[in-house]
Each structure stands twice: as C-alpha cells, then as structure tokens.
Amino acid sequence: MAAVTSKSGRIPPFVTLLLLAITTLYPLGFVASTSFRHKADYLRAPYRWPESWSLDNYVRLIENYDVGRAFINSALVIGVALAVTLVLATLASYAIVKLDLPFRRVFAGSFLSVMLVPSQVLIIPVYLLLSYFRLVDTLPGVTLVYIATNLPFAVFFMMTVMRSVPDVLIEAAKMDGAGPLRTLIDIVVPILRTSILTLAILVFLAMWNELIFGLILLPSEANNLLTPKMASIGGRFVSNQPILMSGLMLTSLPPIIVLTFLSKYLVSGIAAGLGK
C-alpha cells in the first residue's frame, strides 16, 4: 500500500510493529539474561537486571545432566543426515528433471506422495522396523530416519529449482564431452548453490527441532539428542528458572545463529515456496 503518505501517518504502524516485536524479543531477552544469573539473585528480583553474571548454570547443566554429550550427539546425527540428504536430493532431482530417467513419473510421484505424511503415522512401524534391524537406541538408526523423513521435501524443493537451470548449458557441457556427473558438479551445482543453502537451512531447522523420533528411538541417556533431552528434563527445572533458561538457550542458540546470519536465504526460500 503506497498508502501512508504523510510522515506523521507512519508512526502508528511503527509503534504497532514495535509492540509486537517487544512481545517476541522480551521473553527471549528474559531467557538469555536469566540463564546467566544465580538462583538466589533471580529470586530476589526476577525482573531487575542481574547483579552478577556467571556461567554456573551452564556448567551445572553440562556436568550433572550430560547436556554436552547430547549436544555432540545432535551435531553428529544432524551433520551426517543433513549432508546425505542434500547430496541424495540433488542427485535424485537432477536425474528426474534433467536426465533421461526411465520411469521418471513414478519416481517423481513417489517422492511427492510421501511428502505430507505426518510423523505420528510413522512412529510405530518405524520403531518396529528399526528394532528388527537392531537400530533402536543407536545414532545411525535415527540418522537414517532423519534422512528418510526429510528427503521427500528436499527432492521436491530441488526439483523445483532444478527446472530453472537452462537446458542449453547442460547440452553445451554434453557437447564438450562432459559426462552427466561432471556436468552436475561443474555446471548445475554452482548455479544452484544459494538454493541448496536455503534447503540446507530448512532441513537443518527441521532436524534440530525434531522431537518425536528423537524421544522414541533414542531412549538411553547417553544417546539423547539435545532438543528431545531438554523436552524431557525441562519440566524438572520449573522451580529453578535460571538453570532451565540456560538449557533453553543452548537448545535455541543454533537456530538463532542460523537465522541471524542466513536470514536472507531463509526468507527468500519461504517467499519462493509460495509461488507454487
């Protein structure tokens, strides 16, 4: 709306947005500042600025609740699952969109048809399947599940952006004698690198925040991932706000860092996703 023309007319929208931004930022600021103060200091005046800052809550959380281990587990599982998902989705979408793939429509249709299946439908049979292969309570098991549950969307996303790669470029590479893999690595991937980064962010967020499979497939303490772990132990700390807040900080930090530095790619991806 090139609507609000006068300078003074711009103030009410600004104030409204500012108020809404405060409802988002204040709770997060509260979590952050509380996580660095002692319980006694917090109880004396919860809303006052902390008198002293310390990392004690984080140290206690890591020493007593094995949260560091959970963080490393999450990093390992998601690192591998994310990399594999991106590589496999790129290969599959390239074959479906750009190569002479037999049964192309069967493949494309299969990926798309399972894209919207909610995880509740899958938990019971996936649990039984993994227990048959003795993969319950192992990190490779949950890594496989994370790859599988994120692949359909990843393939769909890559198919969409793959269509924007001009066929002329691929034909030209072929004329120069480049094989399909060489063409993919030298021509297609460089063109799509920002799209691949957008996809990487979306898949990372989905994996980092996943809850149900993490809870069910990794029951023993040593194998816990961070988000499911915080979900299950968080309730115990309601009487000790500062330590709970340090747990919430650790769990939210990776997504917030990603949003801070890569928001450009995330926002453009969401805007583009609507064009379908």
């Binding site: 599959a92 399972v114 299946v117 049979p125």
Partner: peptide, 23 residues
C-alpha cells in the same frame, strides 16, 4: 540412463524402505 538410475536409486531406496514400507 544408467547414471540417471544410479543417481535416483539411493534416495528412492531410502524413501521406499523407511517411509513407504512403514506406511
């Protein structure tokens, strides 16, 4: 064609085994 099948196979296999079969 052979490369295309090889390229789509891993993703298709994982989705088949861990999503379609469980459904």
């Amino acid at each position: 064609r052979g490369f295309a099948l090889l390229a789509v196979a891993p993703a298709a296999l994982i989705v088949f085994l861990l999503l379609l079969v469980p459904i």
